[in-house]
Measured scan of single mutants.
Amino acid sequence: AFSSEQLARLKREFNENRYLTERRRQQLSSELGLNEAQIKIWFQNKRA
């Protein structure tokens, strides 16, 4: 489960760009304390 802070950040990123570069995913992973797979799957689900 994502914290409300993490979700807000993911939604902001998604609004700016529906697709993440690998580098951006790595940055978000480290900033949010999530693993890259969690972020990747969140974006895939959000696009679906």
Rank of each mutant, 00 (worst) to 15 (best):
A1C: 13
A1Y: 13
A1T: 13
A1N: 11
F2W: 07
F2L: 12
F2M: 09
F2R: 01
F2T: 02
F2V: 05
F2G: 02
F2I: 10
F2Q: 03
S3D: 06
S3A: 04
S3E: 03
S3M: 04
S3R: 04
S3Q: 04
S4R: 11
S4I: 12
S4V: 13
S4N: 12
S4F: 11
S4D: 14
E5L: 08
E5T: 08
E5I: 07
E5C: 09
E5K: 08
E5V: 08
E5D: 09
Q6A: 07
Q6H: 06
Q6V: 12
Q6C: 05
Q6P: 01
Q6I: 11
Q6N: 05
Q6E: 03
L7D: 05
L7R: 06
L7C: 12
L7N: 05
L7Y: 05
L7F: 04
L7Q: 05
A8W: 05
A8K: 09
A8H: 07
A8L: 09
A8E: 14
A8V: 07
A8N: 09
R9Y: 06
R9G: 07
R9K: 07
R9M: 07
R9E: 06
L10R: 01
L10A: 01
L10P: 00
L10C: 03
L10Y: 01
K11S: 14
K11N: 15
K11W: 15
K11A: 14
K11G: 10
R12C: 11
R12T: 09
R12W: 10
R12D: 10
R12K: 14
R12A: 14
E13V: 05
E13M: 05
E13W: 04
E13R: 02
E13L: 05
E13Q: 03
F14Q: 02
F14M: 02
F14K: 02
F14W: 11
F14C: 05
F14P: 01
F14S: 02
F14R: 02
F14L: 03
F14D: 01
F14H: 02
N15K: 12
N15F: 09
N15T: 10
N15E: 15
N15Q: 13
N15R: 12
N15H: 10
N15M: 12
E16P: 01
E16K: 14
E16Q: 12
E16G: 05
E16Y: 08
E16R: 11
N17A: 04
N17D: 07
N17P: 02
N17V: 04
N17I: 04
R18F: 05
R18P: 15
R18N: 10
R18Y: 06
R18A: 12
R18W: 09
R18I: 08
R18M: 11
Y19F: 13
Y19G: 04
Y19H: 13
Y19K: 06
Y19T: 08
Y19R: 07
L20W: 04
L20I: 09
L20K: 01
L20G: 02
L20V: 05
L20F: 03
L20R: 00
L20H: 03
T21R: 04
T21V: 03
T21H: 04
T21Y: 03
T21S: 12
T21W: 04
T21G: 08
T21A: 04
T21C: 07
T21D: 11
E22W: 09
E22V: 14
E22K: 15
E22P: 15
E22Y: 08
E22L: 11
E22N: 13
R23Y: 12
R23S: 14
R23W: 09
R23Q: 14
R23L: 12
R23D: 13
R24K: 11
R24E: 08
R24T: 06
R24M: 09
R25K: 10
R25W: 11
R25A: 15
R25Q: 12
R25F: 11
R25M: 15
R25V: 15
Q26S: 08
Q26Y: 08
Q26G: 06
Q26N: 07
Q26T: 08
Q26M: 12
Q27D: 08
Q27R: 10
Q27L: 12
Q27N: 07
Q27W: 09
L28Q: 00
L28D: 00
L28A: 00
S29G: 06
S29P: 01
S29C: 07
S29E: 05
S29T: 05
S29K: 03
S29N: 01
S30G: 07
S30M: 14
S30A: 14
S30N: 12
E31G: 02
E31R: 02
E31V: 05
E31T: 04
E31P: 00
L32I: 08
L32A: 02
L32E: 00
L32H: 01
L32R: 00
G33I: 03
G33N: 09
G33H: 06
G33W: 03
G33Y: 04
G33D: 07
G33F: 04
G33K: 07
G33T: 04
L34H: 01
L34C: 06
L34P: 00
L34D: 00
L34W: 02
L34S: 02
L34K: 02
N35A: 14
N35T: 15
N35E: 14
N35S: 15
N35G: 10
N35Y: 06
E36K: 05
E36F: 05
E36H: 05
A37C: 14
A37Q: 14
A37W: 15
A37T: 13
A37Y: 13
A37L: 14
Q38A: 12
Q38H: 07
I39K: 01
I39H: 00
I39T: 01
I39F: 02
I39G: 00
I39C: 02
K40I: 15
K40S: 15
K40G: 11
K40D: 15
K40L: 15
I41E: 15
I41G: 08
I41Q: 15
I41R: 13
I41T: 10
I41L: 12
I41M: 13
I41A: 13
I41K: 12
I41N: 14
I41H: 11
W42N: 00
W42D: 00
W42Q: 01
W42T: 00
W42P: 01
W42E: 00
W42L: 03
F43M: 03
F43S: 00
F43H: 00
F43K: 00
F43T: 00
F43P: 01
F43R: 00
F43E: 02
Q44G: 06
Q44T: 08
Q44R: 11
Q44H: 10
Q44K: 09
Q44P: 02
Q44A: 13
Q44N: 08
Q44F: 09
Q44V: 07
N45V: 09
N45C: 14
N45M: 13
N45H: 11
K46L: 09
K46E: 15
K46G: 06
K46Y: 14
K46T: 14
K46Q: 15
R47L: 15
R47Y: 08
R47E: 08
R47N: 13
R47V: 10
R47F: 10
R47T: 08
A48T: 08
A48H: 11
A48M: 12
